[in-house]
Amino acid sequence: MAFATFWFIVTTVLWTGFFVLEGFDLGVGMLHAVVARDEAGRRAAINTIGPLWDGNEVWLIVAAAAMFAAFPPWYATTFSGFYAVMVLLLAGLIVRGVSFEFRNKVDSVRWRRTWDTLLTVGSLLVPLLVGFTLGGLLHGVPIDQQHEYTGNVGDLFSGYAVFAGITLVLLCLLHGATFMTLKTTGTLERRSATLARRIAPVTALAVLAFLPWTHATAGKGVLPSVVELIAVIAVIAAAWLVVGRSEGWAFFATTIAIATTIVSMFTDLYPRLMVSSTSHAFNLTVQNSASGDYALKVMTVIAAVFLPLVLLYQGWTYHVFRRRVSAEEFTGPRSD
């Protein structure tokens, strides 16, 4: 049981890591064509995340794999129940992933516009659909005694789940805009800052509505939790800091805001993994879904060895590529 709770925490950490890191990649993906109207600017925007996005996306893979290995029924019911959502999500991940590699490989405006559009749409779909799914876990969907999803596509929809998707899209947009402000120079930096200022109030309002809704949906009483309070403070601070033009602190605030929002969703979910709207007796819980103690022990050892190592070398890449990127670097002939 202790191991099962530990793996719930690990899964939470992995999803949080995904949104903190890939969150700004997704934001940059959605905004790259908005923040820059010309080719040089777009390339500069994409290159701020160029060396990083691939490693960041692995957090999603690991999060899903952790669900599979530590809580097989959670993985099985979520992925088969949210079938249509997963099909779209995968399509988004695929077109987004290849557009980085492909967009600059043919020197034609139409070719690049096509991949720009796919990158934008793919980057929008990912947080929207992951948010929708995580929201659905908490809100509840029809699940029977055998833990099988019994509804159809329509039964996945709830106001809360849709709003969870929208909130995460907004958080990623703000996170991406503050990231670009921090990583670019000149016009691009100014335009990113302007975008961040426009997005920030909307995001803050969405989060301020989303957190109480999450708290109420989870039925966790009247008093907000510490994490929720931090999320509220962080998102207000972010909105204030982007106006105040302190780029580094603004990015720090959006990081905390996105992290605590995800952690809030998971702490409110605990000890359930997936709520059944049919009957609470059919909920998937940490207790009834965890793998055997032996498997969890093995995985704990693996995670204890590799996660710190990953943090170390992934952190090092951020150090190597800490320099700002400027659009002027892309005005010359293409290097490939």
Partner: peptide, 26 residues
């Protein structure tokens, strides 16, 4: 595995999921 083979995933996740998670992590 989860989308089309949920019964499989439920049944073997304990054994089959572990190498998958190791693959992702390592």
């Amino acid at each position: 595995f989860g989308m089309n083979w949920s019964t499989y995933s439920r049944f073997v996740g304990d054994v089959f999921g572990a190498p998958l998670a190791m693959e992702a992590l390592a």
